[in-house]
Write a protein that binds this DNA or RNA. Structure first.
Length: 868
RNA sequence: GGGCGUUUAGCUCAGCUGGUUAGAGCACUUCCCUUACAAGGAAGGGGUCCGUGGUUCGAAUCCACGAACGCCCACCA
């Protein structure tokens, strides 16, 4: 006979079932042309990654959707994989080499790439194993890596196609350059951070027409945040409408320190309000100046080596780091008497998203994708409703970005990545150039595989908002471009997981909670349930927040234990699916009606991606209805002599538990499978059951909606009656075991009728000696009562408590309370106590005060019972 | 400079399209180890739903303005 261990042991259970699921191939869907598949592609985590709470949330959501659809009988595919993460991975391997005293340059390119692959073989599966621990039901037989052969082929194909179409071009442009990683970065990879910087003012030089000498007299004053870039100045610019600088173009302007002649140009870009109204023009080191240089046909003068040291164009500062050069140049300007002032200036500075080094706008030859034509189709598809983003507000963010899209710099000067298939080019492609093909490259594209045909386009994409531009928007463009169809129909954007402090969780900040540690402590199900219940929006995590899930797991386990303990002699197996519920006793009809209701709300909530709401509904059904009321009500029938009543109860317990496990399974796959398998063992029609709960049918059925409003209404009255009696008992200090006589005065005939339905149950739950329903009950002194919306409840206190004595007892308590309160208040009103005592002590006293005040209020209310 | 989000109990947050007395978890108080569960059960205390004004028979919910905090985007040198 099946029974459950006194304690749920997540480790054992999780290992056992996951291995079985995976080894039996349960995660691999069968292609069935008659059925519409449900497909998700995983946002591939970095191959260097280890599972953090963001992943845990993201993948729990996906797994819930996947398991839900799988139970609905749809061929369900979740494609897993990892991303080669160019710069990140290269950094990791370089660090490893550094420990061995080696650099990648010493190794050479080929050897280095070998090292990376070696690293990948050894460590690359860390995160996918961690996903297994979480319970993720990915089809691991289809696991892909963005650098594996098939995907590399897809990348080459995509590049070639776009190149042929003229959508890929090469050119000298200002790009974001990370001097540490020594590579170009896309705009998205160079986020701006607000920085407290300086704005430096200094004079340029003008050639005196008489003496021919260079002087600051009559020369323009210029403001800049990056004085070192003056070494690359080609011109100065003013706004053509700026009256102050009328005729400036006739002057001969020279660059200080290098004493080079500069052009003077007029351009609308210059804002007369900012700084001095004169801009130094440095075409090779500023994107705006670059644009101006093109408009005015100016030379571009590069002054930096790739590592951001000054190059030979910047003599005499050659060899100095950019920030060192800045210092020296300011000093030299001061020496020459040209420096005017510096003021503090808040501005935003781009930083490398990988290493946080200040990014340098840098002129170099790079590859670009012309985005405008791609973006227009993506916008059109979105406008036609082919892709929907949830929550709704992200749709505008998406369209705004596409409308203002700029060309995408796709070449990177690193070694780890897809080589550009153009001869003689040493660059590799941006990592995202492989990820944007993910929804179809993983299914075999450019080959026309049957997988591609069947599973594309995918269904939903689940992701954090951070990569909406990086990834989601680009996938939509790629899908339309290469497949002629959007890659997914829905994008679900979930909240960001943060530490309690509001900061992003990160290892380096030491505020991270490791999901695996939590799984070790309380199990994957508890982690999943907690995360989902919390994740209605952004999640601010702390360890205590996992209590909800932990306690819930325990509750489910114990409820199941109770059921099993009472099914020992249960031979009749399952409740027939087409059993007529209406023949059952009201209490059974009630729980079945509630079960049906929760099934519908869960279905409805999942349908609009309100996963957190569905989780909360289930939680309250299991705990608040099934455990707190139904199990309690049903206990006597299970131990009583009425065999028919007992059997009926066993059947319903079995039925409700089994159904509930199915509803919970997407959220808590392990514990539900464990219990469900035990139910399966004792089921009469075991052979009809699927091998796993994963394949049990999802219990929602639109056509068969069982609702029993009569028993539900009666139950609401029962709750009021029971609450009323318990309230009186607790408030009057009557021991729980004390038998009582009670009278209920219903407020209407309707309520009276409802009361009759559950008369026995009311008496049972409140341990009554007798219970009467009297519409015209007149209270005498020996009865005390309380009112609820549909009824009033009275209990006889004569012989149970002495009302006078009880009244006196409460009055005494009130006095004690007041006395204590008084002493605390005095203490807190004493200024020297508040000033000198330790903070904790003061806080403690204040806490006591609040508690006592509430206690006093309670006592006073109890006292009022006697003066009704 | 634009855009978005958040503000509800001591703490962390639910509250979907406006509708009984605004909910949950944790914490707190009192009682209870009742044979599923003390990681539990029962009974409680605690809320001018950020502010102001408006729409409405009715507003935590809708609108306007404002405040605080947070996020995203943007070429002000």
């Amino acid at each position: 006979m099946a029974e459950l261990a006194p304690r749920y042991n997540p480790h054992e259970v999780e290992k056992k079932w996951y291995e079985l699921w995976e080894s039996k191939g349960f995660f691999t869907p069968k292609i069935d042309s008659k059925k519409k598949p449900y497909v998700i592609v995983i946002p591939p985590p970095n191959v260097t990654g280890i599972l953090h709470m963001g992943h845990a949330l993201n993948n729990t959501i996906q797994d819930i959707l996947i398991r839900w659809h799988r139970m609905k009988g749809e061929p369900t595919l979740w494609v897993p994989g990892t991303d080669h993460a160019g710069i990140a991975t290269q950094n990791v391997v370089e660090k490893k080499l550094a420990k061995e005293g080696k650099t990648r340059q010493q190794l050479g390119r080929e050897k280095f790439i070998e090292e990376v692959w070696k690293w990948k073989e050894e460590h690359g599966s860390t995160i996918t194993h961690q996903l297994r621990r979480l319970g993720a039901s990915c089809d691991w037989t289809r696991e892909r890596f963005t650098m594996d052969e098939g995907l590399s082929k897809a990348v080459r194909e995509a590049f070639t196609k776009l190149h042929k179409k003229g959508l890929i071009y090469q050119g000298n442009y200002i790009i974001n350059w990370c001097p540490r990683c020594q590579t170009a970065l896309s705009d998205e990879e160079a986020p701006y951070t607000e920085t407290e910087g300086k704005l430096y003012y200094y004079y340029y030089l003008v050639k005196d027409s008489k003496t021919g000498k260079l002087t600051k007299e009559g020369a323009p004053l210029i403001a800049t945040t990056r004085p070192e870039t003056m070494l690359g100045d080609i011109a100065i610019a003013v706004n053509p409408k700026d009256e102050r600088y009328k005729g400036i173009e006739k002057k001969e302007i020279y660059l200080p320190l290098q004493n080079r002649p500069l052009h003077v140009i007029k351009d609308d870009f210059v804002d007369p309000e900012f700084g001095t109204g004169v801009v130094k023009v440095t075409p090779a080191h500023d994107p705006n100046d670059f644009e101006m240089a093109i408009r005015h046909n100016l030379e571009q003068r590069n002054i930096l080596y790739p590592d951001a040291r000054i190059n030979e164009n910047g003599k005499p500062y050659e060899g100095l780091d950019r920030f060192e050069a800045r210092k020296r140049i300011i000093e030299d300007l001061k020496k020459e008497g040209l420096f005017d002032k510096e003021i503090s200036h808040k501005h935003t500075v781009p930083h490398c998203y990988r290493c946080h080094t200040v990014v340098e706008p840098y002129l170099s030859k790079q590859w670009f994708v012309k985005m405008r034509p791609l973006a227009e189709r993506a916008l059109k598809a979105h406008a036609e409703g082919k892709v929907k983003i949830t929550p709704e507000r992200w749709n505008k963010v998406y369209t705004n970005w596409l409308e203002g899209i700029r060309d995408w710099c796709i070449s990177r000067q690193i070694w780890w990545g897809h080589p550009i298939p153009i001869e003689g080019d040493k660059d590799v492609l941006d990592t995202w150039f492989s990820s944007w093909l993910w929804p179809f490259s993983t299914l075999g594209w450019p080959q026309k595989t049957k997988e591609l045909q069947y599973f594309y386009p995918t269904s939903d994409l689940v992701t954090a908002p951070e990569i909406l531009f990086f990834w989601v928007a680009r996938m939509i463009m790629a899908g339309l471009e290469f497949m002629g169809e959007v890659p997914f129909k829905n994008v679900l954007i979930h909240g960001t997981v943060r530490a309690q402090s509001g900061l992003k969780m990160s290892k380096s900040l030491g505020n991270a909670i490791d999901p695996l540690e939590v799984i070790d402590e309380i199990g994957a199900d508890a982690l999943r349930q907690s995360l989902i219940m919390l994740a209605a929006q952004d999640v601010y995590l702390s360890k205590e927040k996992f209590e909800v899930g932990k306690n819930f797991t325990n509750k489910i386990w114990n409820a199941a234990r109770f059921v099993f303990m009472n099914l020992q002699d249960f031979k009749k197996g399952t409740l027939d699916p087409d059993f007529d519920f209406r023949k059952l006793a009201p209490v059974h009809r009630w729980i079945l009606s509630r079960l049906e209701e929760v099934t519908h709300t869960v279905e409805e909530s999942l349908g609009r991606f309100a996963l957190s709401q569905a989780a909360t509904e289930l939680y309250h059904f299991v705990w608040g209805k099934f455990c707190d009321w139904y199990i309690e009500l049903v206990k006597p029938a299970l131990t009583g002599a009425d065999k028919e009543a007992k059997l009926q109860t066993q059947k319903v317990l079995f039925f409700v538990l089994e159904r509930t496990l199915r509803l919970l399974h997407p959220y808590m796959p392990f514990i539900t499978e464990e219990i469900w398998q035990k139910l399966r063992e004792i089921a009469k029609d075991k052979k009809k059951w699927p091998q796993t709960l994963m394949f049990a049918s999802w219990p929602f059925d639109q056509k068969k909606h069982y609702q029993d409003s009569e028993s539900e209404e009666s139950f609401r009255v029962l709750e009021q009656a029971v609450d009323g009696i318990r309230e009186l008992r607790a408030n009057l200090g009557i021991p729980p075991g004390q038998r009582l006589k009670a009278v209920i005065r219903p407020k209407s005939d309707h309520v009276a009728k409802a009361l009759d339905v559950f008369e026995k149950e009311i008496a049972q739950l409140t341990r009554l000696e007798s219970l009467e329903f009297k519409k015209d009950f007149q209270r005498s002194k020996s009865w005390l009562g309380t009112a609820h919306s549909d009824l009033e409840v009275f209990i006889q206190v004569e012989g149970v408590i002495d009302p006078e004595k009880e009244k006196a007892r409460i009055e005494r308590k009130i006095q004690e309370c007041e006395k204590y309160l008084d002493s605390i208040r005095k203490k807190l009103e004493n200024p020297s106590f508040v000033a000198n005592a330790p903070e904790e002590l003061v806080a403690e006293e204040q806490g006591k005060l609040l508690n006592l005040e509430s206690l006093l209020k309670t006592h006073q209310e109890h006292l009022s019972l006697f003066s009704q």
